[in-house]
Amino acid sequence: AEPCSRPHRGLSNSTGWFRRLLHKPKPSSGESSLSSSRSASSSPSSSSSSAQSLSRPSGASPSRAPPPAPDISASGSARWAKSYDLCICHSQGDLELVLELVSYLEAQPQALRCFLGLRDAAPGGALLSELCDAVRDSHCWLLLITPGFLRDPCCHFQMHQALAEAPLAAGRAIPVLKDVDRKDYPKELRNLYYIYMALKESGFRQIRDTVVRYLQELCRSSSSSSE
């Protein structure tokens, strides 16, 4: 006999008890006539107030809609305190994928500003200095962890710079794994959740949503602290 196909008595009994608990008994004839007479004599306003009292516990305040998300593109937003929304750390072998990602992010309604070394670094600038400046002048840092990233000393340097810049800032460092096993995930990032890019389109959307969410929280906290 297969244990998985055998019904569980304890589960069946508890299910029956739960159904009896939820079962509403029918009112007696006296209760039915009393309730019908009350409903006939009640005014629309009293019926409305009764419905409202049933919809929420006594003494509870009316439910409020969640506050609207801050406009991260508004002038004076905390977003504009830095030159870039996202600095992308990647290996040269992943440049084609990164160019697609940057085109996608910059074409979004939020027009996310991305630092791309090949395009935005100052000509003649020292490589390490440019990387450090890009990390400091960006709100978030995307670490595109691929086999090429794991072999590239510059990628490791930029990763450590990002972690040293804001080690406790949740949401700023965004690890993205592609074609890398979980066992090869850098130990320095083990305390951070990552995005696994199995499908390019869904991975791009996750990256966009993560950056926008961080910028919204940044603007919200900045607005509340200034009040």
Score class of each variant (00 low, 15 high):
residue 209 D to L: 04
residue 188 E to A: 14
residue 75 S to G: 03
residue 48 S to W: 08
residue 219 C to N: 12
residue 151 R to D: 14
residue 117 G to K: 02
residue 182 R to I: 09
residue 75 S to N: 10
residue 93 G to I: 03
residue 167 P to M: 10
residue 138 S to R: 01
residue 112 L to C: 09
residue 88 I to T: 03
residue 193 Y to L: 14
residue 37 S to T: 04
residue 124 G to W: 05
residue 47 S to H: 12
residue 189 L to G: 11
residue 107 A to V: 01
residue 69 A to F: 07
residue 26 K to S: 15
residue 104 Y to A: 13
residue 85 D to W: 04
residue 193 Y to A: 12
residue 5 S to W: 06
residue 76 G to R: 07
residue 207 I to F: 04
residue 56 R to L: 14
residue 145 I to W: 05
residue 162 A to F: 07
residue 166 A to P: 00
residue 17 W to F: 08
residue 28 S to I: 01
residue 213 R to M: 06
residue 176 V to A: 07
residue 36 S to D: 08
residue 144 L to T: 00
residue 70 P to H: 05
residue 42 S to F: 06
residue 160 H to A: 10
residue 106 E to F: 11
residue 119 R to F: 14
residue 37 S to Y: 10
residue 186 P to Q: 07
residue 192 L to R: 10
residue 46 S to H: 02
residue 211 V to Y: 06
residue 186 P to G: 03
residue 169 A to F: 11
residue 27 P to W: 08
residue 110 Q to L: 04
residue 49 S to W: 07
residue 137 D to G: 01
residue 13 N to I: 13
residue 151 R to N: 14
residue 126 A to Q: 15
residue 221 S to D: 13
residue 137 D to K: 11
residue 94 D to C: 03
residue 170 A to Y: 09
residue 143 L to Y: 04
residue 10 G to D: 13
residue 162 A to Y: 01
residue 35 S to G: 06
residue 180 V to R: 05
residue 53 S to A: 15
residue 5 S to Q: 14
residue 96 E to Q: 13
residue 145 I to E: 02
residue 199 L to N: 15
residue 105 L to G: 12
residue 209 D to S: 09
residue 127 L to Q: 03
residue 28 S to P: 01
residue 33 S to Q: 11
residue 62 P to L: 09
residue 149 F to N: 00
residue 155 C to P: 11
residue 31 E to S: 08
residue 126 A to N: 15
residue 199 L to V: 05
residue 118 L to K: 09
residue 36 S to I: 01
residue 141 W to D: 00
residue 152 D to I: 01
residue 70 P to V: 07
residue 125 G to N: 06
residue 146 T to S: 15
residue 124 G to F: 10
residue 10 G to H: 03
residue 128 L to R: 04
residue 224 S to I: 10
residue 160 H to D: 14
residue 137 D to V: 02
residue 53 S to W: 06
residue 197 M to D: 03
residue 190 R to G: 00
residue 164 A to R: 12
residue 73 S to Q: 05
residue 25 P to S: 08
residue 139 H to M: 02
residue 157 F to M: 08
residue 53 S to I: 02
residue 82 K to N: 13
residue 198 A to Y: 11
residue 207 I to D: 04
residue 85 D to Q: 07
residue 139 H to A: 04
residue 115 F to D: 03
residue 79 R to N: 05
residue 140 C to G: 01
residue 185 Y to G: 00
residue 94 D to I: 00
residue 202 S to Q: 15
residue 53 S to T: 04
residue 165 E to Q: 12
residue 51 A to W: 08
residue 48 S to L: 13
residue 147 P to H: 07
residue 129 S to W: 01
residue 44 P to E: 08
